Simulated scan of single mutants.
Amino acid sequence: MPKTYAFWNNKGGTGKTSLCFQALTFYANQRPDERVLAIDVCPQANLSELLFGGLTGQGSDVLLARQNEPTRRTIGGYFELRMPNPYTAPQIDPHAYIATPAEYNTAIPENIDIIAGDPILELQSNAVSTLANNQIPGTSPWIKVVDWLRDLIESLGEEYDTIFIDANPSFSMYTQIALASADRLVLPVMADDSSRRAIQNAFSLIYGLKLPSAIYTQYAFATKLQAEGRALPKVHVIAKNRLTQYVVSASAYTAVLRSIDADVKTLIAAYPEMFSAKETADVMVEIRDFQTAGVVSFARGCPFYAQKPGRMDVMGKRVRVKGEYLQNCVDSIQQLVDEL
């Protein structure tokens, strides 16, 4: 199996998709001999739109065209294939669901492919959950369903070296399918108290820590996955995003960051098997505010390293990207990519 990174946080708005987009494009650009696959397991499909060209490059039109083909060429189309016989892996042609973003967006490295996201995942969610929770003697419907994405990855053999998964900010069944196929977790957080709680929630959902009652243990993701002899994904990076929407004093901001560090240090000491590193410094990465550079990058579907400073037109408006700010963005993402 290739190295597989899932970008996920149960809390929305933590910059998960933006970090996944920048990290995977930086990673692929710096490793042209590797094949990289992005899998967008999020109904919003924002990662797909970015890779296909963003707002100004008609990325949404490319995505919509793939969703509207007779067989949806998306992750939702693959799930449609699995639903009639959910517990038996069919003969899969994975390339039916794979696109090469560079064919639509020249800013994207040619060694990146993608299985695009699809809003139909929300419609499929209840049906998939029902299939997973059926009671069938002699088999485990839950593991059969949770392995849908793993089956697809295995059907690709050694075609890809690294996989990046953008997972939905939820813990729905399709999110569990995404996380069960990953071996490393990138957890973006904000510098606020709600993100401190989000870290705790993430460890409860994935690893079954500090559940409110023992009654939940038998239903926990960790319990069911480990019962099948399967390993849980390890926390590889916790990315602290610094966004200017938090108008707080520097001292208060620093205090929150330090408290997050302290929480993670305690978790590593108590549960080292849940992390891929042994020291807090090897897990934590700080990401600077992207500011205008981020607005332009995501509107154009253009990675920071390929972006130029100066004034440019974005949807009829002239905006200016300062070279210093752009370099700060490049340096921040590089710190994250250096950990992958």
Rank of each mutant, 00 (worst) to 15 (best):
L340Y: 13
L267R: 05
N111I: 03
T71V: 15
Q135T: 13
N10Y: 13
G157H: 03
S251G: 00
I287A: 01
V321I: 10
A116E: 07
Y271L: 07
T139K: 15
D183H: 07
Y87P: 03
Q91L: 10
S297Y: 09
L149K: 04
N111E: 07
S332Q: 06
I333P: 02
N241K: 08
S249L: 10
M173V: 10
S48P: 10
I136E: 14
G57E: 11
W148P: 03
P188Y: 08
L257Y: 04
P233W: 12
V264H: 10
D33F: 08
L37E: 05
D183Q: 14
T17V: 07
I39T: 05
P169S: 11
C302L: 15
N9T: 10
I238C: 06
I199D: 00
R311K: 12
R318V: 08
V283C: 07
G301T: 04
K234Y: 05
A231N: 12
Y27G: 01
G294Y: 07
E154N: 15
N168F: 11
E80D: 14
I333M: 11
F221P: 00
K234D: 02
S125K: 13
Q307S: 09
V62I: 15
L257F: 04
A293D: 00
V296N: 00
D93E: 14
L225P: 03
L55A: 09
V256D: 04
V296K: 00
E122C: 01
M83P: 02
G15E: 09
K144R: 12
A6K: 04
A191W: 06
D313R: 07
N10I: 15
V256R: 03
A214H: 09
Q30C: 03
K317T: 11
D33K: 15
A178Q: 09
L149V: 06
A293F: 01
L209Y: 06
A198P: 05
W148G: 03
L37P: 02
G53Q: 00
P137G: 10
N105H: 12
L50E: 01
I215R: 15
I206N: 01
N168S: 12
V145M: 01
A102Q: 14
Q307K: 07
T139F: 12
V186E: 05
Q334H: 12
N46W: 02
V337A: 09
T100R: 14
G323C: 04
D338Y: 09
W148H: 13
A45G: 08
V247N: 14
S194E: 12
D313M: 12
G77E: 07
A252C: 00
A28Q: 04
